[in-house]
């Protein structure tokens, strides 16, 4: 973990500094003397290896100092404010994705080659096929203006949670539905399921008790990437719905060369992704008796 973070820190540190432009670039050019002073204040005048060591030290102490772009706040404060927002948005999106996706996947696998199956898979494909900014745009027109159920943007009420959560979760619901269907079909054709049917167990029991646990495996291994996807997808959704999460910070920090904030966010995202992947590995081993946890 520490090594992963260190590698990522190093890569991002040098990538950031290789990109033309720095955090002190503004539309109005600064007088050279002022710029010199600012560079000194932010230690940007030092040789790159000293900046590297300094920043590494800051990371180890978990204090990256102040953001360049949002100058009144420490990187830690920005993350502390944005993270819970992004996290709860992500959890709601995941809730949508899993509940819709698993249900649709199981139903279409069981009702294979019926109208229900075709309709669900068509819907799932539409979910996959459209960029989430298109889905969000259409949803806003439908449910904010034509049928005013939800507010257009903002954060803080249950209503404000539904649309962004759905738009963020929809593509993943669609993926999960497809993976689930495929996995389920595969399992349903296996001998032990046939045995279960042969014993005269009802479909419901067979599917939920016996097949689900194995069939859900591809979904589980998709959860890691799905989390990553929901995290990055939130960049778009947070911007469209004006939600004060980390996603919008991320783009702005990267394009605005906000070295400190960008670094903080990269490391946070890395930690998150790493944790999720580890959790997925553990649950994979726990769900599939054939995999031994090494």
């Amino acid at each position: 973990m520490a090594i992963t973070l260190w590698v990522i820190f190093t890569v991002s540190f040098f990538l950031m500094r290789a990109v033309p432009g720095g955090p002190l670039d503004r539309e109005r050019s600064l007088a050279p003397e002022i710029e010199k002073n600012l560079r000194e204040r932010y230690h940007l005048d030092e040789p790159i290896w000293r900046q590297y060591v300094r920043e590494l030290g800051n990371v180890v102490r978990l204090d990256l100092g102040y953001s360049f772009r949002l100058a009144d706040f420490r990187v830690g404060e920005i993350i502390a404010q944005g993270f819970p927002v992004s996290a709860s948005l992500g959890i709601v999106a995941m809730l949508f994705a899993l509940s819709l996706g698993l249900t649709a996947g199981i139903v279409s696998a069981v009702r294979r080659q019926t109208i229900v199956d075709v309709a669900l898979m068509l819907l799932a494909t539409v979910g996959i096929a459209l960029p989430n900014f298109v889905i969000a745009g259409v949803m806003i027109i439908l449910f904010v203006f034509i049928w005013p159920l939800f507010p257009a943007a903002g954060w803080g009420t249950l209503g404000q949670l539904v649309l962004p959560g759905f738009c963020l979760g929809a593509p993943y619901a669609a993926y999960i539905a497809r993976l689930m269907r495929t996995g389920m079909l595969e399992v349903l054709s296996q001998d032990y399921i046939r045995t279960a049917y042969a014993k005269g167990l009802p479909t419901r029991t067979v599917v939920l008790r016996h097949a689900l646990k194995t069939a859900v495996l591809p979904v589980v291994s998709f959860l890691g990437p799905a989390t990553a996807g929901i995290l990055t997808g939130s960049l778009v959704i947070e911007q469209i719905f004006a939600i004060p999460g980390l996603g919008a910070h991320f783009i702005q920090a990267a394009t605005g060369r906000d070295y400190t904030l960008a670094m903080g966010l990269v490391l946070i995202y890395t930690t998150l992704l790493y944790t999720m992947n580890t959790l997925v590995d553990i649950s994979y081993a726990y769900l599939d008796p054939r995999v031994k946890l090494e």
Binding site: I3, T4, A18, A254, T255, Y269, L273, E294
Partner: peptide, 30 residues
């Protein structure tokens, strides 16, 4: 499996944990 698998997957994990959007933005601007 075993150690090789562990090592190879650890490498994938490291890559996985990189927020690629960031890298893409940087690579494209560079």
């Amino acid at each position: 499996g075993g150690r090789i698998d562990n090592l190879m997957m650890r490498f994938v994990d490291v890559l996985y944990s990189i927020p690629f959007i960031f890298v893409v933005i940087f690579l494209i601007t560079i």
